[in-house]
């Protein structure tokens, strides 16, 4: 099977072509202009990850929402589950940037943290 992956590491956006074997192993990898592209495409094929950024409800703040992020990327396939989980959350103002909102979020070994200070309003 042939798979195309656009490298997103730098603006050159190389189109990387992967030849995938029957056991999902990479037989060949071409089109990358540097090694970072190889690392990226390999990871993207085997275990793609994304950082989740979203909002959670906040009580008593200057805004009704607090922007949050995962402090490390999480498996791409977990984004939906992660969104459903954050929809259930509510925190109390004031909050400081970096405050851990959920530790070991969804057992993924990452924390969900506040992206900004949010004063009481």
């Amino acid at each position: 099977m042939i798979k195309h992956i656009t490298c997103t590491v730098c603006p050159l956006s190389c189109e990387i072509t992967l030849e995938i074997g029957e056991n999902n192993e990479i037989i060949s990898l071409t089109g990358n202009r540097c090694n970072r592209g190889k690392v990226y495409a390999t990871k993207e094929h085997t275990a793609p990850e994304r950082t989740l950024t979203t909002t959670v409800r906040v009580r008593g703040g200057v805004h009704p929402l607090l922007p949050v992020r995962t402090d490390q990327p999480i498996p791409k396939g977990k984004l939906k589950e992660a969104m459903l989980a954050t929809a259930q959350l509510e925190v109390e103002a004031p909050v400081k940037m970096g405050t851990v909102i959920v530790e070991n979020f969804l057992d993924l070994g990452v924390n969900l943290v506040a992206s900004r200070d949010l004063e009481r309003g």
Partner: peptide, 29 residues
């Protein structure tokens, strides 16, 4: 304070300046 960055909650800001992928609010903060 913070301007438009406060609503740009996605990450990818500050790669050059802070060598980190910050969200808009984090960059502003």
């Amino acid at each position: 304070l913070g301007g438009i960055l406060q609503q740009c909650i996605h990450h990818g800001f500050g790669l050059h300046r802070f060598k980190a992928e910050l969200t808009g609010p984090e960059y502003a903060q």
